[in-house]
C-alpha cells in the first residue's frame, strides 16, 4: 500500500527526516507513529499526503510514485492535527463542500449521530468549541470509505464519550480491512488501540515492531514507561554514535542521536 524509501527532508538547516525506509502493506492494521516533539511524525505523514515535498527519496502508494500526483489522495482519509475551518460556513455546508470537492460514497449521517453533531449542523463554524470542531474534523476525515486512514492526533480536545466512540470506530474500520496510521502523545490510547508501533527519533526510525516487542526489549510492563526509557536512555548517551541497531530482526540505520525532551 505505502512504500517509503530513503526519505530525506529538512527545513533550512534543521534536518527532520534522515533517510526513512518504511513499508506498510498490512490491511486491517493500526500503526502508531510515536516520537518526541519535532521527531518528524507530522512531516512523515504530510510527505505521504504530498503536502510536504521531500528533498530525496521515494513514496509509492499502491505501487505508484506520488510525485506531482493528486488522484491517489482519493485512497486516503486524512485528519489534520489542527481543526480550523472557514468561520462563516455552517457545519452542514462544510460537509457538503467536501462532498462536492471529492467524489465517492460518504457516510456522514452515521458519524454525525456518533459524535452528536446534529444540534450544530446549522451553526457557523467559528462559534464552535475546540472539541466540537475536532468532531467535525473527524466526520470530514472519516466519512469516506478509503482503504488508508491517516489520523494526526485524533484524540485532541475530545470528551470521554466521544473518545470511547472514536476508539470503537477506529477498531471497526480496522475490522473492515483498512490500514490506519495515527500519531498521538497519549500512550494509553496507543496501548489500547495500536497493533504496531513505529518510533521516530531524531529523523530516523528507532524502533518498529509490536507493543509486546517494545515492552520486552525495554523490559517494562507499561508502554508509557518503555517509551520514557527510550527517551531517557537516549538522553544519557546523547553524544555516542550508534550507526546501526538491530531491532525486531531488522537492522535499522541510525545516526548520532541528538535528543531533546
Amino acid at each position: 500500500m505505502i512504500t517509503i524509501s530513503n526519505l530525506f527532508k529538512s527545513y533550512g538547516r534543521q534536518k527532520i527526516l534522515k533517510g526513512i525506509d518504511l513499508d506498510f502493506n498490512k490491511r486491517g492494521c493500526i500503526t502508531a507513529i510515536l516520537g518526541p516533539n519535532g521527531s518528524g511524525k507530522t512531516t512523515l505523514i504530510k510527505s505521504i499526503l504530498g503536502m510536504v515535498l521531500p528533498e530525496k527519496g521515494k513514496i509509492l502508494v499502491d505501487g505508484k510514485s506520488i510525485k506531482g500526483q493528486c488522484a491517489y489522495r482519493s485512497q486516503i482519509d486524512y485528519l489534520p492535527q489542527i481543526a480550523q475551518f472557514p468561520g462563516n460556513l455552517h457545519v452542514q455546508e462544510l460537509i457538503n463542500m467536501i462532498k462536492d470537492l471529492r467524489e465517492g460514497q460518504t457516510s456522514e449521517a452515521r458519524l454525525i449521530e456518533l459524535f452528536d453533531l446534529q444540534p450544530f449542523l446549522n451553526k457557523k463554524l467559528r462559534t464552535l468549541s475546540g472539541g466540537t470542531k475536532q468532531k467535525v474534523n473527524l466526520t470530514l476525515a472519516l466519512m469516506y470509505d478509503s482503504p488508508i486512514v491517516i489520523l494526526d492526533e485524533p484524540t485532541s480536545g475530545l470528551d470521554p464519550i466521544a473518545l470511547t466512540r472514536l476508539k470503537a470506530l477506529i477498531r471497526e474500520e480496522k475490522e473492515r480491512g483498512k490500514f490506519i496510521l495515527l500519531t498521538t502523545h497519549i500512550m494509553s490510547f496507543v496501548e489500547e488501540i495500536a497493533d504496531e508501533i513505529v518510533f521516530l527519533l531524531d529523523g530516523n526510525i528507532y524502533f518498529r515492531g509490536s507493543k509486546k516487542e517494545l515492552k520486552t526489549q525495554f523490559q517494562e510492563e507499561q508502554l508509557e514507561k518503555a517509551i520514557a526509557n527510550i527517551l531517557l536512555g537516549e538522553k544519557k548517551k546523547n553524544n555516542i554514535k550508534v550507526p546501526f541497531k538491530a531491532i525486531n530482526g531488522k537492522h535499522i540505520r541510525r545516526q548520532k542521536p541528538a535528543l531533546k525532551i
Binding site: L49, G50, M51, C70, A71, Y72, R73, S74, I76, Y78, P80, I82, A83, Q84, F85, P86, G87, I98, L101, R102, N137, L140
Partner: peptide, 17 residues
C-alpha cells in the same frame, strides 16, 4: 492566514494544489 489550516485540509483532498 486565516484559511491556512483549512487549506491544509483541502491539500489532503484529491485536488490539484
Amino acid at each position: 492566514y486565516n484559511s491556512r489550516e483549512f487549506t491544509e485540509l483541502l491539500l489532503a483532498q484529491p485536488i490539484k494544489r
